[in-house]
């Protein structure tokens, strides 16, 4: 499995990472080097082996489905690059 430039551009789009046209080929080469490295797993026999979902056998705790925190919008918004009237602001998304 080898990634071409178009696939790298598609993944970058999915990951919301801007990547310049000129950077596609070098990035494809780097990613292919890593994929080549992990390719060996294909040879491991995993027939009938379940995927690991938790390393520690434990029962997750349940709690009442109630609000336990909140009520301080100013703290929540304190780190926002842009906020107005208690809301985060972003570029216009509806015409």
């Amino acid at each position: 499995m080898s990634l071409d430039n178009a696939t790298v551009a598609k993944i970058a789009r999915l990951a919301r990472l801007k990547i310049d046209e000129a950077a596609l080929a070098p990035m494809a080469a780097e990613l292919n080097q890593i994929l080549e490295f992990v390719e060996e797993l294909g040879a491991v026999n995993t027939d009938g082996v379940p995927p690991l979902t938790s390393v520690v056998a434990t029962q997750l705790k349940m709690r009442d489905d109630v609000v336990t925190d909140g009520g301080y919008p100013e703290k929540v918004l304190a780190n926002a690059p842009a906020a107005e009237q208690g809301f985060y602001t972003v570029p216009k998304v509806v015409e």
Partner: peptide
């Protein structure tokens, strides 16, 4: 992020991520 997005993307999840989680069991 790019490698991770790729191995989780449609069509590759089983070949990479699921396979890796099985090897993890081993």
């Amino acid at each position: 992020i790019l490698i991770g997005t790729y191995v989780l993307s449609a069509g590759y999840y089983d070949a990479y991520y699921l396979k890796a989680q099985k090897v993890r069991t081993l």
